[in-house]
Structures are given as structure tokens and as C-alpha cells.
Design a binder for these strands. Structure first.
Lengths: 222, 222, 222, 222
DNA sequence: GATGAATGAGTTTTCATTCAT
DNA sequence: TATGAATGAAAACTCATTCAT
């Protein structure tokens, strides 16, 4: 029935409405600084209503992060599926994918990385934790696959591909956090893009059996 | 005056006593989970006394982080000053230095990285922020110098050395946070050491004008 | 009108449906622990619907209690109307009647007794309070009548019969509450039946002008 | 030191001050109706201060009840230790003891009985529960001992003395609750004293092997 | 200098109840 | 008649911080 559908759509919209408000508040205040009341105010709802759509503050927070991870997954998978057969290029292109993710929502991404290693995971519903893990696992495996391909082609020296994916992931999160940190003192934007490019270029080069030719214009200069 | 000196020394000792207690509590409970009362209890002092030595919770926390940064600085500088003339080795040795710092106090280190990009910096006294920045700046410049040396010797391709130092730093913090995150699900320790080795080895290789020979035993394997 | 009647019957059925759900929830969660939402869920209705049939939570609760009181009345009146002319036996038989009531729904009965002396009476509609009082008054008068009969026959020493009925009633409620209390620590059931027997046997004996012969098998032993 | 003592005394006084405020509030609002804020207001303290002296609302409540139980114990033990050798009189005197307890603080006593069979026991610290149980156990055993003595003297028919004590206890609590209930509608006080007298007189008589002579002036009349 | 005691200012969460549909 | 959705109002509890002694 049309009515049922409309209801379902409205419900989804409300969730989004809340998540958008939450995104703003969490972004600007951090997890602990954000209050449910402030989020409700932004969403033009009462605090109690928030609890109709999210079990508690933690789950609301986690939902945001999950959304980010989904986006990250997509972008990374898109890179992996490109028809470029050259693993070196693919690795370098990860920089752009990650940068896109960062641009999509820098502050929430920061939270994602904070969350991963922190207190906020406690108190989440099992499902939520499972979903988050599944999603970041998926991203990691996709990255690992890129490295595997390179090794199979004899281009990359052999390493544990998952370890390499971990490294990329950690590098990314570290750079993002570091970026935010520098931003506090020097809001001239975007040390990130060149640093990401640099990082993945060095990584790709470091992996190669033979030194590859220079590539991207941002990749090498003083 | 002797008396003044003695006083000053006692004051410093009390500070250390408090910081040690705080380290334990912050480490095991996180910043928000830690309470001043618990810290006071561990230090066998009253909560009120803490405020004689630290302006507030934030500053106490920041002091700990500062101490970590000092330690980091020392270790990095030691690597830089070693007489090994080979920059590639020096870069690889950074992995060990960083790992030492991690071992010294993993959780506080985690906090350092969290803090850098976060809420806790607000509310710190200007002096504190200045000191923290000075200290991490020092570490960064030292790392940058290692890269500079390599470039000057024509071993490394030219890049902005500070950008490289930033990259190392971010990589390190990302790996540490990521490590802690994995630790939650799989407490079999120390994915960190090999990953750090790998990271800095790849970095060094990636920088080299010509592919260097394999080096460390942890550097390459499936 | 047939239609009107059907409507009325349906309405009564809905009420029962709700009351059954409420009975389960109140029984297992207590008054404050029970939520209207949970009751609605059990009744397979929406919370809002409950308010079409009961003015508020208090009245719903009171309805249950009223139903218990009705049942109690019936059982007590049945004892009173039995053709046994012997008041001593009748008093002893009250034990069984009361025990039946207890078995019918121990937890709600507990609530009845709690309610009588408590907070929950506030906020009830006047009608409800009146009905509850009428019903418990009826039970009390029935019990009093049994004692009166005994006195009239010269078997029982003279006392105010209503005072005796009060005593029986209070004894009953006290035993039930006490029973529930012991149940928390020792769920081996049914200290209640023998204690009720004992209580009413002693009561009957105490009332008699002359010591009667022993009667029930449960009535006397070490 | 005098200072230490003074501190300790002050601390005890604060506890009492809070308990007195709590007594009033719990008495007039019931457990759930009472709020910590109201109690604090009465005690002329801040709500937070209450938590320095009592772990939570439950424990504050339980403390009050414990105090009542102590008083009850004392009074019952005093009756038991009286030199009257006559168990019948002793049983009758329990009525007075219980009435004294009631007068000491009717409303809290009501709460004691409510608590015994209710939700409020959950969430209490283990110690508290233990103390409460110990105290009521002590009262029960004392009462049981009075009955035992009567049986040993051949005056009372043999019954399990603990069952009799339970009966007395339950009767008492039932009468108290019932009294409060009637008080709501008819605040002319004290249906309780004569009913207690009646109850224990009947009990004593019912227990006797041979019908005893009439005793107390309140014990028999229409 | 040290502290025991006190508290102000929050914050999350819960639910009975209502009302437009 | 039935309800999904919304919310107002509360209430328990916590803690960094202060201050009289």
C-alpha cells in the first residue's frame, strides 16, 4: 500500500534528520561534549523522540560512523574495480579515494577513527558492533586485494597483504587526525591531499621490486 | 636559598607523585572515565590537593602527555645523533624508537594522539599548549633532519622534509591507535612492532633514488 | 438494540483482553516496573488504545485489584452460605477460601494489599475507589457475619464482629505479603497454606467459650 | 584526639539529619514518590551531599527501615526478658510492644513491611540486606522463644515455634498496613491498639491447652 | 601546605499520556 | 475505533571544583 510506503519513507527521513543534526553536533563538540538535548534542538525534535529512533547516544553516534564507513567502502571498492591493471596506479589512486572520503565529512571521519580505538565501542548493541566491524573488514580486504594482485603479477615484493592494508588504513587515520590537529592552529586547509599522495606514492614505490617511474605531479618535489 | 630549593624540589616530587597516579588512572579509565577523586586516592592525597599542583583535570592530563612527548623526543634524537651515516638505516631505526615509546606507556601514548586532535586541548593554559607544541615540533624537526640528510647525500629523492616527518608522525599515531583498536578484539599482542618495521622500511625504500638491499629480518616476507 | 448490545459486549471483551495482559505485566514487574507500552504489546494493541478503555495506569491497575476482590468476595460468601451450621468449621474453612484466592493470582493479590495502604489509591476516580471499598466492605461484612452467628449461638465469646473480620483480613494480607517476602529467599513454595490453617484454627479456638476438639490434620503438630 | 571525635560525631549527626528528612519524605510520599531532591531540601543540604552519606536512594531507605527493625527488636526482647514466667501474659504483652513500635513511627513501619515483600530489596548492598535479615531474624527468634517456653511448660499445645512467630509477625504487619489503609478514609485514630490486643489475646487463648481466664480489660467485650 | 566536606551544574534516559490521522 | 508518533516533565546520580579549617 502507498500508505505503508510513505510511512516507511517518513521514518527513514526522520532518522536522517536526526543523524544530520547529530553529525553537526558531534562534529563540533566531540562525543562527550555533544548532548542529546542539543542534537534534539537542532533536529527540531524533543530529546525523547531521539530515543524512538536510536537506542541511546552511543548507537546514534555509531550510526553516523557506520554511514561514513559505508561511503569509504564504496570508494575503495570503486578503485579496486577500475580496469587499470596497474597495481601501482591503484595504490596511488587510493589516496584520492581516501581524500574524497575525508572531504565528504572530515569531522565525522575523525570520530570514526577515534571511535575505533576507544571507549565508545562499549555499550553498543551487538548488531551495531558487528556491522561496523563487517564494514571496516570489507574495506580492509578490498585494499589487501589490490596488494595481492600486485604481488601475483610479480610487481610487488611479497608481504602479508592484510598487514599492508592495515598499514594503509592506519596511515590514513593517522593523517586525518593529524590534519585535524594542525587545522586547530593553522586553518589554511589541506595539508592532507599532498600528504596522502606522498604517503601512498612512497608506499607503492617501497613495495615495488624495481623502482618505478615518477607519476603524479604532486608526488615529488621539494 | 637552600630552603627555597628544597621547597621547589618537594613540589616537583609531589607533582611526580600525582602524575604517576594519574597515569595509572587515565590509562585504565580513559580521560572521561578517570575521576580526580580516584587519582587522588591512588596518590594518597585528597582531591583538593591535586588542585594545588595542577590547575585542573585538563592540565594534569596534558602534563602526562607532555612527559610522553619528552620521552619520544629523546628517543628520536638519540637515533638522529647516532653515528651511523646511513639515512636509510636511520629511518628504519625510527621504528624501534617509536616502538620503545609505545612500550613505555601504550595507553598514555594513545591519549597523546587522541588529545592532539581533540577536545582536550581546549581549556588548557596557553603555556601548556605552547610547551606541547614546542615538544612535538622538536620531535618533528629531528625526524625531518634525518630525511634532509638523506636528500643532501643524494640518497633520497627530494621532498619537503617536514612533510615527510609529518607523515612518519601520523603513521605512527595511526598505527598506535589502530593497534589499540585491534587489541580490543584480539589481545594477542604486538601487531605493532612488525607493522612499524614494515612501514618505515617501505617508507625508506620508497624514498630511495635506487632500490636498496633488503635489511632487517622483519622487513620482507609473506 | 442488538447493535448496542454487541458493542457493549465487544467493549467488555477488549477490557478483559487488556486486563489479562496487564495482570501478567503487573504481576511480573510490579506497579512501577510495569509500563503501559509493555501491557499494550502483550495485549497486541497500541498504548493509545489502552486509554480508550481505562482512564490511566492507576485505574487499569485498580480494575485488576477489583477483580481480585470480587473473586475473594465470592469465595468467602460461598463459605458463609455453606449449610454447615458450625461456626468453628466455617472460620477454619476461611483458610481454604483465602488460600484459593491466593492461588488464583498471588502477585496481584500482593498488589491488592499493597495498594490498599498506599500511593496507588491517589489519582483513582471516585467511582473506582467507591467500588473497591464496597467490594472489600462486602467481604468484611460476610466474614463478620460468620463470627456473629457464632456469638449468637453462644459458641464464641462476644467481640465486635467487624473487629474480628478486620483481624482476619489483616492477618490474611500480612501472611500473603510475608509469604512473598520469604519466597524471595526460599522459593520452596507454600509456607502459606499451613500458616493460614494454623492462624484460623488458633483464631477459632481463641474465640470459643470452651476449648473445641482438634480438627484439621494440618492444625497441630510440632 | 578531640578533633577526630568531634568529626566523627558531626558525621553521625549529618547522617541522622538526613535520615530524619528522609523519614518525613518517605513517610508522606512513599518510596517511589519521594525524591532525593525533596529529601535534600528538607535536610537543608544539596542532593549531591546525600550521596556522600548514602550510596543511593535504596540504601537511604533501607537505613531507615533498619533503624525501625532495631527498635522493634529491642522492644520484643524486653518483653521476652521480663521476669513474668507466664507465657500467656508474655504473648499478650507483645501487643503492647508492637504498638509501641508502631507509635514510634507509624509510616516508616509501614514502609518496613512494604519493603520486605518488594522491589526495594533489589539494588541494596549485600551488607544492608544481611543486616536487615539478621535483625528481623533476631526479632522472630525472640518471639519464637516465648512460644517455645510456653510449650515446654505444657501450657501451649505443640506447634512449630517459628511458624507461630511468623504468624505473629505477619499479623502485625497486616494489621499495620490495614490500619494505614483505614486511616486514609477515617483518620479517627487507633483502631490498631484494640485490634492488636484482640489478636494476641486470641492467639494466646487459641494456643492454650486449657482455656485461660480473661485478662486484659481490652481483651473481651462486644 | 593539606584536606574533608559540600555542592552546582549537568546529562542521559524513561514513560504516562496525547492527538492528528 | 485504533494507532503511530511525539513529547513534557522528571529524577537519579556524577564529578570537577571550591573553601573553611
Amino acid at each position: 500500500m502507498g500508505v505503508t510506503e510513505r510511512k516507511a519513507r517518513e521514518k527513514r527521513l526522520r532518522r536522517l534528520q536526526i543523524m544530520d543534526a547529530a553529525k553537526q553536533v558531534f562534529s563540533s563538540q566531540g562525543f562527550n561534549g555533544a548532548t542529546m538535548e542539543e542534537i534534539a534542538r537542532r533536529a527540531e525534535l524533543s530529546p525523547a523522540t531521539l530515543y524512538l529512533y536510536f537506542k541511546n547516544k552511543n548507537e546514534l553516534y555509531a550510526s553516523l560512523n557506520l554511514r561514513m564507513l559505508e561511503f569509504l567502502c564504496e570508494r575503495v571498492e570503486k578503485v579496486a574495480q577500475e580496469d587499470t591493471p596497474d597495481p601501482v596506479s591503484k595504490v596511488r589512486k587510493l589516496a584520492q579515494a581516501m581524500y574524497d572520503v575525508y572531504r565528504f565529512d572530515p569531522l565525522i571521519l575523525t570520530n570514526v577513527f577515534h571511535m575505533q580505538s576507544s571507549e565508545a565501542l562499549q555499550g553498543l548493541s551487538h548488531d551495531m558492533v558487528a556491522e561496523i566491524n563487517a564494514m571496516s573488514g570489507r574495506a580492509l580486504r578490498t585494499i589487501a586485494a589490490i596488494f595481492s594482485a600486485g604481488m601475483d603479477q610479480g610487481l610487488f615484493r611479497r608481504h602479508h597483504p592484510i598487514a599492508l592494508a592495515d598499514l594503509v588504513w592506519a596511515m590514513f587515520s593517522g593523517l586525518v587526525l593529524w590534519e585535524e590537529s594542525k587545522r586547530l592552529f593553522d586553518p589554511r586547509k589541506d595539508h592532507l591531499k599532498p600528504t596522502l599522495d606522498l604517503a601512498l606514492d612512497l608506499l607503492a614505490r617501497g613495495l615495488c621490486v624495481q623502482t618505478p617511474a615518477d607519476a603524479s605531479p604532486g608526488g615529488s618535489s621539494a
